[in-house]
Amino acid sequence: MGKSSKDKRDLYYRKAKEEGWRARSAFKLLQLNDQFQLFKGVRRVVDLCAAPGSWSQVLSRELFEKNQYTANDEIPPKIVAVDLQPMAPIDGVTTLQADITHPKTLSKILEIFGGEPADFVCSDGAPDVTGLHDLDEYIQAQLILAALQLTTCLLRPGGTFVAKIFRGRDIDLMYSQLGYLFEKVICAKPRSSRGTSLEAFIVCLGYKPSSHWKPTLDPNVSTEDFFKGANIGRYELKDDLTYEEEKRNVAPFIACGDLSSYDSDATYTIESNVDRISLDPVQSPTAPPYKKAIEKKRNGEIKR
Protein backbone atom coordinates (compact mmCIF):
# COMPACT_ATOMS: atom_id res chain seq x y z
CA MET A 1 0.00 0.00 0.00
CA GLY A 2 1.34 3.35 -1.01
CA LYS A 3 0.87 6.66 0.76
CA SER A 4 -1.91 8.53 -0.96
CA SER A 5 -3.04 7.48 -4.45
CA LYS A 6 -6.24 5.59 -3.81
CA ASP A 7 -7.13 7.08 -0.45
CA LYS A 8 -10.09 9.04 -1.63
CA ARG A 9 -11.74 6.63 -3.96
CA ASP A 10 -11.42 3.42 -2.05
CA LEU A 11 -12.99 3.42 1.35
CA TYR A 12 -11.67 -0.01 2.32
CA TYR A 13 -8.20 1.12 1.43
CA ARG A 14 -8.40 4.04 3.83
CA LYS A 15 -10.16 2.04 6.50
CA ALA A 16 -7.40 -0.58 6.33
CA LYS A 17 -4.80 2.05 7.09
CA GLU A 18 -6.88 3.50 9.89
CA GLU A 19 -7.38 0.12 11.53
CA GLY A 20 -3.76 -0.90 11.08
CA TRP A 21 -4.19 -3.64 8.50
CA ARG A 22 -1.25 -4.15 6.17
CA ALA A 23 -3.56 -4.50 3.16
CA ARG A 24 -7.23 -3.90 2.40
CA SER A 25 -7.60 -7.63 1.73
CA ALA A 26 -7.98 -8.10 5.52
CA PHE A 27 -11.65 -7.15 5.09
CA LYS A 28 -12.11 -9.88 2.52
CA LEU A 29 -11.15 -12.59 5.02
CA LEU A 30 -13.28 -10.94 7.72
CA GLN A 31 -16.31 -10.92 5.42
CA LEU A 32 -15.67 -14.51 4.35
CA ASN A 33 -15.60 -15.44 8.02
CA ASP A 34 -18.89 -13.63 8.65
CA GLN A 35 -20.46 -15.79 5.99
CA PHE A 36 -18.84 -19.17 6.65
CA GLN A 37 -17.72 -19.04 10.32
CA LEU A 38 -14.30 -20.11 9.13
CA PHE A 39 -12.54 -19.65 12.48
CA LYS A 40 -15.00 -21.52 14.64
CA GLY A 41 -13.16 -24.12 16.71
CA VAL A 42 -10.00 -23.59 14.71
CA ARG A 43 -6.72 -24.08 16.60
CA ARG A 44 -4.05 -24.68 13.94
CA VAL A 45 -3.92 -22.45 10.90
CA VAL A 46 -1.60 -22.03 7.93
CA ASP A 47 -1.55 -18.81 5.91
CA LEU A 48 0.17 -19.39 2.55
CA CYS A 49 1.60 -16.66 0.30
CA ALA A 50 1.06 -14.52 3.36
CA ALA A 51 3.13 -11.35 2.72
CA PRO A 52 2.59 -8.56 3.57
CA GLY A 53 0.56 -10.34 6.24
CA SER A 54 -2.92 -8.86 6.46
CA TRP A 55 -4.61 -12.27 6.56
CA SER A 56 -2.21 -13.37 9.32
CA GLN A 57 -3.13 -10.19 11.18
CA VAL A 58 -6.81 -11.12 10.89
CA LEU A 59 -6.08 -14.68 12.05
CA SER A 60 -4.05 -13.40 14.97
CA ARG A 61 -6.74 -10.95 16.12
CA GLU A 62 -9.58 -13.42 15.60
CA LEU A 63 -7.96 -16.45 17.21
CA PHE A 64 -6.26 -14.70 20.10
CA GLU A 65 -8.22 -11.53 20.89
CA LYS A 66 -11.79 -12.25 19.75
CA ASN A 67 -11.84 -15.83 20.97
CA GLN A 68 -10.49 -14.52 24.27
CA TYR A 69 -7.82 -17.06 24.48
CA THR A 70 -6.52 -17.13 28.02
CA ALA A 71 -3.51 -18.73 29.56
CA ASN A 72 -5.83 -21.20 31.23
CA ASP A 73 -6.65 -22.90 27.94
CA GLU A 74 -4.65 -26.05 27.59
CA ILE A 75 -3.26 -25.36 24.07
CA PRO A 76 -2.95 -21.91 22.55
CA PRO A 77 -3.93 -21.47 18.86
CA LYS A 78 -1.05 -21.82 16.40
CA ILE A 79 -0.73 -19.71 13.28
CA VAL A 80 1.99 -20.26 10.70
CA ALA A 81 2.49 -17.76 7.88
CA VAL A 82 4.57 -18.86 4.88
CA ASP A 83 5.94 -16.72 2.08
CA LEU A 84 9.01 -16.50 -0.15
CA GLN A 85 9.22 -12.81 0.76
CA PRO A 86 10.34 -11.68 4.20
CA MET A 87 7.52 -10.52 6.48
CA ALA A 88 7.43 -8.23 9.49
CA PRO A 89 6.53 -10.16 12.67
CA ILE A 90 2.93 -10.38 13.89
CA ASP A 91 1.88 -11.27 17.43
CA GLY A 92 1.01 -14.92 17.80
CA VAL A 93 2.12 -15.77 14.26
CA THR A 94 5.15 -17.88 13.38
CA THR A 95 6.47 -16.61 10.06
CA LEU A 96 8.42 -18.87 7.73
CA GLN A 97 10.30 -17.51 4.74
CA ALA A 98 10.03 -20.65 2.64
CA ASP A 99 8.89 -22.29 -0.58
CA ILE A 100 5.44 -23.85 -0.20
CA THR A 101 6.31 -26.61 -2.67
CA HIS A 102 9.27 -27.83 -0.62
CA PRO A 103 8.91 -30.84 1.73
CA LYS A 104 11.06 -29.08 4.34
CA THR A 105 8.42 -26.39 4.68
CA LEU A 106 5.85 -29.08 5.38
CA SER A 107 7.93 -30.70 8.07
CA LYS A 108 8.61 -27.33 9.70
CA ILE A 109 4.91 -26.53 9.88
CA LEU A 110 4.12 -29.96 11.28
CA GLU A 111 6.86 -29.48 13.84
CA ILE A 112 5.30 -26.22 14.99
CA PHE A 113 1.93 -27.95 15.19
CA GLY A 114 3.47 -30.73 17.26
CA GLY A 115 2.65 -33.28 14.59
CA GLU A 116 -1.05 -32.40 14.61
CA PRO A 117 -2.89 -31.60 11.33
CA ALA A 118 -4.16 -28.14 10.45
CA ASP A 119 -7.79 -27.12 10.76
CA PHE A 120 -7.68 -24.33 8.27
CA VAL A 121 -5.39 -23.39 5.34
CA CYS A 122 -5.76 -20.18 3.38
CA SER A 123 -3.96 -18.45 0.54
CA ASP A 124 -4.45 -14.91 -0.72
CA GLY A 125 -1.61 -15.31 -3.22
CA ALA A 126 -1.81 -14.06 -6.78
CA PRO A 127 0.89 -14.39 -9.42
CA ASP A 128 2.10 -11.47 -11.52
CA VAL A 129 -0.27 -10.94 -14.40
CA THR A 130 1.23 -10.94 -17.89
CA GLY A 131 -1.81 -9.97 -19.93
CA LEU A 132 -1.98 -13.31 -21.74
CA HIS A 133 -5.24 -14.37 -20.11
CA ASP A 134 -4.87 -18.09 -20.70
CA LEU A 135 -1.31 -18.16 -19.35
CA ASP A 136 -2.31 -16.05 -16.35
CA GLU A 137 -5.14 -18.46 -15.59
CA TYR A 138 -2.82 -21.41 -15.89
CA ILE A 139 -0.24 -19.88 -13.53
CA GLN A 140 -2.99 -18.94 -11.08
CA ALA A 141 -4.28 -22.53 -11.17
CA GLN A 142 -0.73 -23.81 -10.59
CA LEU A 143 -0.40 -21.55 -7.58
CA ILE A 144 -3.66 -22.89 -6.13
CA LEU A 145 -2.57 -26.45 -6.88
CA ALA A 146 0.77 -25.81 -5.19
CA ALA A 147 -1.07 -24.51 -2.13
CA LEU A 148 -3.41 -27.45 -2.37
CA GLN A 149 -0.52 -29.94 -2.52
CA LEU A 150 0.79 -28.68 0.77
CA THR A 151 -2.75 -28.47 2.13
CA THR A 152 -3.49 -32.13 1.34
CA CYS A 153 -0.40 -33.10 3.36
CA LEU A 154 -1.49 -30.94 6.30
CA LEU A 155 -5.22 -30.62 6.56
CA ARG A 156 -7.31 -32.79 8.81
CA PRO A 157 -10.35 -34.46 7.23
CA GLY A 158 -13.24 -32.07 7.60
CA GLY A 159 -10.87 -29.08 7.48
CA THR A 160 -11.26 -25.94 5.39
CA PHE A 161 -9.25 -24.49 2.50
CA VAL A 162 -9.74 -20.94 1.21
CA ALA A 163 -7.88 -19.44 -1.74
CA LYS A 164 -8.04 -16.44 -4.01
CA ILE A 165 -9.16 -17.13 -7.59
CA PHE A 166 -9.79 -15.13 -10.73
CA ARG A 167 -12.96 -16.16 -12.46
CA GLY A 168 -11.84 -16.68 -16.03
CA ARG A 169 -12.45 -19.16 -18.80
CA ASP A 170 -11.28 -22.33 -17.04
CA ILE A 171 -12.34 -21.68 -13.47
CA ASP A 172 -15.03 -24.36 -13.77
CA LEU A 173 -12.25 -26.93 -14.24
CA MET A 174 -10.78 -25.88 -10.91
CA TYR A 175 -14.22 -26.08 -9.21
CA SER A 176 -14.67 -29.57 -10.53
CA GLN A 177 -11.26 -30.80 -9.34
CA LEU A 178 -11.67 -29.35 -5.86
CA GLY A 179 -15.09 -30.96 -5.69
CA TYR A 180 -13.36 -34.37 -5.53
CA LEU A 181 -11.42 -33.37 -2.40
CA PHE A 182 -14.02 -31.40 -0.42
CA GLU A 183 -17.63 -31.88 0.64
CA LYS A 184 -18.58 -28.41 -0.53
CA VAL A 185 -16.95 -25.96 -2.92
CA ILE A 186 -18.29 -22.41 -3.04
CA CYS A 187 -17.21 -19.38 -5.00
CA ALA A 188 -17.51 -16.44 -2.65
CA LYS A 189 -17.20 -12.75 -3.38
CA PRO A 190 -16.84 -10.45 -0.36
CA ARG A 191 -18.24 -6.96 -0.82
CA SER A 192 -14.80 -5.55 -0.11
CA SER A 193 -13.59 -7.14 -3.35
CA ARG A 194 -14.47 -4.88 -6.24
CA GLY A 195 -17.37 -5.91 -8.44
CA THR A 196 -15.39 -4.68 -11.39
CA SER A 197 -12.57 -7.12 -10.62
CA LEU A 198 -12.65 -10.82 -11.46
CA GLU A 199 -11.26 -11.68 -8.05
CA ALA A 200 -13.23 -14.10 -5.88
CA PHE A 201 -12.45 -16.74 -3.24
CA ILE A 202 -12.89 -20.41 -3.39
CA VAL A 203 -14.16 -21.74 -0.07
CA CYS A 204 -13.66 -25.51 0.23
CA LEU A 205 -15.39 -27.03 3.23
CA GLY A 206 -15.08 -30.55 4.65
CA TYR A 207 -11.85 -32.03 3.38
CA LYS A 208 -12.48 -35.65 2.28
CA PRO A 209 -9.51 -37.16 0.43
CA SER A 210 -9.76 -40.59 -1.13
CA SER A 211 -8.60 -43.13 1.46
CA HIS A 212 -6.36 -44.87 -1.10
CA TRP A 213 -4.36 -41.76 -1.81
CA LYS A 214 -1.25 -40.81 0.16
CA PRO A 215 -0.05 -37.35 -0.81
CA THR A 216 3.75 -36.90 -0.57
CA LEU A 217 5.66 -33.73 -1.36
CA ASP A 218 8.70 -34.31 -3.54
CA PRO A 219 10.49 -31.53 -5.40
CA ASN A 220 10.97 -33.80 -8.37
CA VAL A 221 7.28 -34.57 -8.70
CA SER A 222 5.29 -32.08 -10.73
CA THR A 223 1.83 -30.96 -9.65
CA GLU A 224 0.46 -33.08 -12.47
CA ASP A 225 2.10 -36.21 -11.05
CA PHE A 226 1.29 -35.29 -7.46
CA PHE A 227 -2.45 -35.49 -8.03
CA LYS A 228 -2.23 -38.74 -9.99
CA GLY A 229 -4.16 -41.24 -7.94
CA ALA A 230 -6.19 -38.56 -6.16
CA ASN A 231 -8.80 -39.04 -8.87
CA ILE A 232 -9.69 -35.41 -9.17
CA GLY A 233 -10.49 -35.61 -12.88
CA ARG A 234 -7.29 -34.08 -14.20
CA TYR A 235 -6.22 -35.07 -17.68
CA GLU A 236 -3.48 -37.64 -17.54
CA LEU A 237 -0.89 -38.08 -20.23
CA LYS A 238 -1.81 -40.80 -22.74
CA ASP A 239 0.32 -42.27 -25.49
CA ASP A 240 -2.05 -41.26 -28.25
CA LEU A 241 -2.42 -37.73 -26.80
CA THR A 242 -6.07 -37.50 -27.76
CA TYR A 243 -7.96 -34.31 -27.11
CA GLU A 244 -10.43 -34.68 -24.30
CA GLU A 245 -12.77 -32.23 -22.61
CA GLU A 246 -12.31 -32.45 -18.87
CA LYS A 247 -15.18 -32.29 -16.48
CA ARG A 248 -16.30 -28.79 -15.60
CA ASN A 249 -18.58 -27.67 -12.81
CA VAL A 250 -20.07 -24.36 -11.84
CA ALA A 251 -19.60 -23.78 -8.12
CA PRO A 252 -22.45 -22.04 -6.30
CA PHE A 253 -21.79 -18.33 -6.00
CA ILE A 254 -22.26 -16.47 -2.73
CA ALA A 255 -21.80 -12.76 -2.24
CA CYS A 256 -20.74 -12.12 1.35
CA GLY A 257 -20.53 -9.24 3.74
CA ASP A 258 -23.95 -7.79 4.44
CA LEU A 259 -25.52 -5.13 2.26
CA SER A 260 -24.97 -2.44 4.83
CA SER A 261 -21.20 -2.91 4.62
CA TYR A 262 -19.28 -0.55 2.42
CA ASP A 263 -19.49 -0.99 -1.34
CA SER A 264 -15.99 -1.22 -2.82
CA ASP A 265 -17.19 0.12 -6.19
CA ALA A 266 -18.89 3.18 -4.82
CA THR A 267 -17.38 6.63 -4.51
CA TYR A 268 -17.88 7.98 -1.02
CA THR A 269 -17.71 11.54 0.09
CA ILE A 270 -15.17 11.75 2.87
CA GLU A 271 -15.78 14.49 5.40
CA SER A 272 -13.89 17.52 4.20
CA ASN A 273 -11.65 17.79 7.28
CA VAL A 274 -10.04 14.37 6.78
CA ASP A 275 -10.20 14.57 3.04
CA ARG A 276 -6.71 15.77 2.31
CA ILE A 277 -4.79 13.94 5.02
CA SER A 278 -2.90 11.05 3.53
CA LEU A 279 -2.11 8.29 5.95
CA ASP A 280 1.21 6.54 5.87
CA PRO A 281 1.01 2.95 4.70
CA VAL A 282 1.18 0.36 7.46
CA GLN A 283 3.97 -1.37 5.58
CA SER A 284 5.98 0.03 2.68
CA PRO A 285 5.76 -1.65 -0.71
CA THR A 286 8.66 -3.94 -1.60
CA ALA A 287 11.16 -3.01 -4.30
CA PRO A 288 10.09 -4.33 -7.71
CA PRO A 289 12.55 -6.22 -9.95
CA TYR A 290 12.42 -3.37 -12.50
CA LYS A 291 13.62 -0.74 -10.02
CA LYS A 292 16.93 -0.32 -11.84
CA ALA A 293 15.21 0.08 -15.23
CA ILE A 294 13.06 2.88 -13.81
CA GLU A 295 16.14 4.62 -12.40
CA LYS A 296 17.85 4.43 -15.78
CA LYS A 297 14.82 5.94 -17.49
CA ARG A 298 14.68 8.69 -14.89
CA ASN A 299 18.37 9.48 -15.39
CA GLY A 300 17.84 9.80 -19.12
CA GLU A 301 19.90 6.72 -19.93
CA ILE A 302 16.91 5.26 -21.74
CA LYS A 303 15.55 7.75 -24.22
CA ARG A 304 12.95 6.14 -26.39
Binding site: L135, Y138, E224, R234, L237, L241, T242, Y243, E244
Partner: peptide, 8 residues
Protein backbone atom coordinates in the same frame (compact mmCIF):
# COMPACT_ATOMS: atom_id res chain seq x y z
CA UNK B 1 -6.71 -33.48 -35.41
CA UNK B 2 -6.10 -31.43 -32.25
CA UNK B 3 -4.18 -33.33 -29.55
CA UNK B 4 -3.27 -32.49 -26.01
CA UNK B 5 -0.82 -33.15 -23.21
CA UNK B 6 -1.24 -32.88 -19.45
CA UNK B 7 0.61 -29.58 -18.96
CA UNK B 8 1.04 -26.13 -20.43
Amino acid sequence: NEQMINDW
